[in-house]
Nucleic acid binder design. Structure first.
Length: 432
DNA sequence: TCTGGGGTCCTAGGACCC
DNA sequence: TCTGGGGTCCTAGGACCC
């Protein structure tokens, strides 16, 4: 009989408050306290809002043109998104977190899960550990984070929500440290739609069943949840009860599909411009494909008109199988453009186009086709490696296929992007 | 004039096989 | 006249996430 008891799992969820907004503020402290938003690609929607803007009732995803009046009235500052900067800041936060616990899952650009049950005591417990994470991340990157701790991922998310919304937690909430009656009170005060895994659709159906709050979902029967909504909801329900069903995904799995698409800065009608844009998206997707050392056996290409317009709509997509899996930008581009020829119809004003690489597999393990030619494959790999190196060192798009065009009049709008402070020598911040 | 982009997992139902 | 049923694989679509 073993006398060694494994400690119960303890998950921490660390997320950066208003991540994109906070990244901008880290380099322009004068923006602190000023209402501001960061806009999606094409300066379309607000995808990050400062607390001041949230207080004005602006919802996530509000189109910028719809809030212009409000913006004028309250002097809301708007920034175009600067993904190079955000990606780099995100990596810095993850580096810091890995020092606290090696069992770290990077869940999204601004959130990580950590398993902390074996290390929390080194810092004086979960709450003290959370406070030290906050301090170090603030000091080293300038970013504010909140920490939620619980026995399951779903409860850690819930705790994080409490930490974010309620100042009395001082940015760190450990559910275990909250007395039971208080936990019940917190759970009964928050809408069921806030639970991780419960989206708008399911929340509405739950409401009809009389389940309105987190507590009511926690107290529902998991079996019944499964009957109505499937295994995902059964798991969510169990996780709320403290039964851990979702493990930490600390090993990064290669993506199963890689997408690149954009809305155009203005309507596009000609096939020439669609060709250019698709070639340019494809080179991004293929570069990502090579980064994860995969090859793709099929390219999906699609074009769409503006669904918000009253014009006649045309949406089309086509999957083009590759004769053999490849990571070569030029081969994949040829396939995508062949697909475009099939689906293109003239006479429409296109708003968006994109490509998706699918049927991905590991490049090393790939089956050689009988037509495969070692020398050809090797030349292709060398060419792509050189391309990736140049674009890495001199900025993406430095070397690209001629098919992607030179003027790129279809390119997205991006009117107010901040400098890429941390990744470009010529855009370094200057301190006077 | 202006409305993002990139993912995952699950399930139902059809195709196909024996 | 009688015209099965179960298993597996694949795909499309729905739901969710940030």
């Amino acid at each position: 009989m073993s006398t060694v008891s494994t400690p119960a799992p303890q998950f921490a969820l660390v997320d950066v408050n208003n991540f994109y907004v906070s990244c901008e503020r880290a380099f322009k402290p004068r923006l602190e306290g000023i209402p501001m938003v960061v806009l999606s690609n094409n300066d379309g929607c607000a995808v990050a809002r400062s607390n001041e803007v949230k207080a004005l009732g602006v919802k996530m995803g509000t189109p910028w043109f719809k809030m212009k009046d409000l913006a004028r009235e309250h002097r809301i500052q708007a920034f175009s998104s600067n993904y190079t900067l955000y990606g780099d800041m995100s990596n810095r936060v993850v580096q810091i977190l890995r020092d606290f616990s090696p069992d770290t899952e990077v869940y999204s650009i601004d959130e990580s899960f950590l398993r902390i049950e074996t290390v929390a005591h080194l810092y004086g417990g979960a709450i003290a550990m959370g406070q030290q994470m906050r301090e170090r991340i603030k000091q080293w990157t300038g970013l504010p984070v909140c920490v939620g701790v619980g026995p399951t991922k779903t409860l850690a998310k819930f705790a994080n929500h409490l930490a974010k919304k309620n100042p009395e937690f001082e940015g760190v909430c450990d559910l275990h440290a909250i007395p039971r009656p208080d936990r019940v009170r917190w759970m009964s005060g928050i809408e069921v739609g806030e639970v991780w895994g419960v989206g708008g659709r399911i929340a509405r159906r739950l409401e009809v069943m009389g389940i309105h709050t987190v507590l009511e979902l926690r107290n529902a029967s998991p079996k019944e949840m499964r009957r109505h909504f499937g295994v995902v909801m059964e798991r969510t329900c169990n996780e709320l009860r403290g039964i851990s069903c979702l493990a930490l995904d600390d090993i990064v799995q290669p993506k199963q599909q890689i997408m690149s698409s954009r809305s155009f800065g203005r309507p596009v009608e000609t096939i020439e411009e669609l060709r250019e844009s698709l070639a340019s998206y494809l080179s991004r997707a293929a570069a990502k494909l090579r980064t994860q050392q995969s090859v793709s056996a099929a390219v999906y290409v699609f074009i769409q008109t503006n669904r918000f317009n009253k014009d006649e709509q045309y949406n089309a997509g086509l999957t083009v199988p590759m004769p053999e899996p490849t990571d070569n930008t030029l081969t994949l581009t040829a396939a995508a453009l062949a697909g475009l020829e099939v689906i293109y119809r003239s006479g429409y004003r296109y708003k968006k186009a994109g490509v998706m690489l699918t049927l991905l597999s590991d490049k090393q393990a790939r089956q050689m086709s009988i037509f495969d030619h070692a020398a050809v494959t090797q030349r292709s790999t060398q060419l792509m490696t050189a391309l990736d190196m140049i674009n890495r060192d001199y900025g993406h798009g430095t070397v690209r296929s001629g098919a992607s065009g030179f003027t790129q009049r279809w390119a997205m709008r991006n009117q107010n992007r901040s400098p890429r402070y941390t990744t470009r020598w010529d855009e370094l911040p200057i301190v006077y």
